[in-house]
């Protein structure tokens, strides 16, 4: 265990030092995207990995976070940091509204219901004039400052903000894993009826896990809106994004603390690099490569890459 902590400290130290050593914008951008998806993957892992409820609607929380921030900033000039909090509030509300009926469904039924919810959200935002409809929202260009959450000359501040979000998400996931909540969630995943017979309030703990997942994903949405400064429905709420979050967790290891981190470090460079190197001629090849990886992993190693790294040392 002690070795694990040392590895973690070296890893986070390297992440923090990286942009100071390498000044190129592209690797910084790549790591920002990796950390963004790792944080969202951690969020998905709490509901999908620990609790075993496969949500294909998590992109909705990302969209709600991004849109809450953008609408408040554009229409009322409210700081994105407050927008972040408002986004979290709405995301939790959405998680509760969606979760209350959906969590009575099991397995595939739940998964398909979350697809439906995600698609409804996408359609609502695509047709909602106030939220920019299909065109989306351009953020106003404000002077660079922390309070405005906008930095134009360098990606460095964004890098450290997402690093903090990523580490915080990891910390929350660690707390969940160690807490009573985490044990309940895993009990629900392994044997729902058994957990119920032991007096665990299934609905309640699924809802808590879903809300935590929603908050983490929503914060990532706010970050994305401020990083890219332009959002539209398909860039923030597409079904494919929800699927990618599941894939990241599957690649790394479902229900494992570092699973989504490993998954994001493998998945994001793979898709970004195939896209860069193959260009428009190779459009679709990135999808083919990672779909084969998913199929192979799901058939032969459903525990993910984490299980390969830790084979022999942990159970």
């Amino acid at each position: 265990m002690k070795k694990g902590i040392i590895v973690l400290i070296i890893f986070l130290g390297a992440l923090a030092a990286f942009p100071l050593v390498y000044q190129d914008p592209f690797p910084r951008h790549m790591l920002i995207m990796i950390m963004l998806y790792a944080a969202m993957g951690i969020g998905w892992n709490i509901i999908g990995g620990y609790t075993g409820q496969v949500s294909f609607g998590n992109a909705a929380f990302f969209g709600v976070g991004a849109y809450a921030t953008a609408i408040l900033l554009v229409n009322y000039g409210i700081s994105p940091w407050l927008g972040m909090i408002v986004g979290c509030f709405f995301s939790v509300a959405l998680a509760i509204i969606v979760g209350y009926p959906c969590f009575r469904l099991q397995g595939h039924y739940f998964a398909i219901a979350t697809i439906a919810v995600g698609e409804i959200m996408l359609l609502v935002f695509t047709n909602w004039e106030y939220a920019g409809a299909a065109v989306g929202i351009y953020m106003p260009i404000l002077p660079e400052s922390f309070i405005n959450f906008e930095f134009h000359t360098s990606k460095l501040p964004y890098y450290y903000i997402i690093l903090v979000i990523f580490v915080a998400a990891l910390g929350v996931s660690h707390l969940v894993e160690r807490s009573r909540l985490g044990y309940y969630c895993r009990a629900i995943k392994e044997d729902t009826d058994g957990a119920r017979s032991l007096g665990i309030n299934i609905q309640r703990y699924k809802m808590i896990a879903f809300s935590i997942s929603a908050v983490i994903t929503s914060i990532c949405g706010t970050f994305y809106a401020q990083y890219v400064l332009y959002i539209h429905p398909t860039s923030t709420m597409d079904l494919m994004m929800s699927i990618q979050l599941c894939i990241i967790c599957l690649i790394g290891g479902l229900g494992k603390l570092y699973g989504p981190v490993i998954g994001a470090f493998v998945f994001i460079p793979m898709t970004e690099l195939t896209r860069v190197y193959l260009g428009s001629e190779g459009q679709g090849v990135d999808l083919m490569i990672y779909s084969m990886l998913i199929i192979i992993l799901a058939i032969w190693r459903p525990q993910g890459l984490w299980a390969i790294f830790t084979r022999g040392t942990a159970k």
Partner: peptide, 19 residues
């Protein structure tokens, strides 16, 4: 296999065919 593996395999086919 567990339901998750089944979901991911058919999803993998979906992504592969589209790609």
């Amino acid at each position: 296999a567990p339901m998750l593996s089944q979901i991911f395999v058919t999803f993998g086919v979906l992504i592969f065919l589209r790609g």
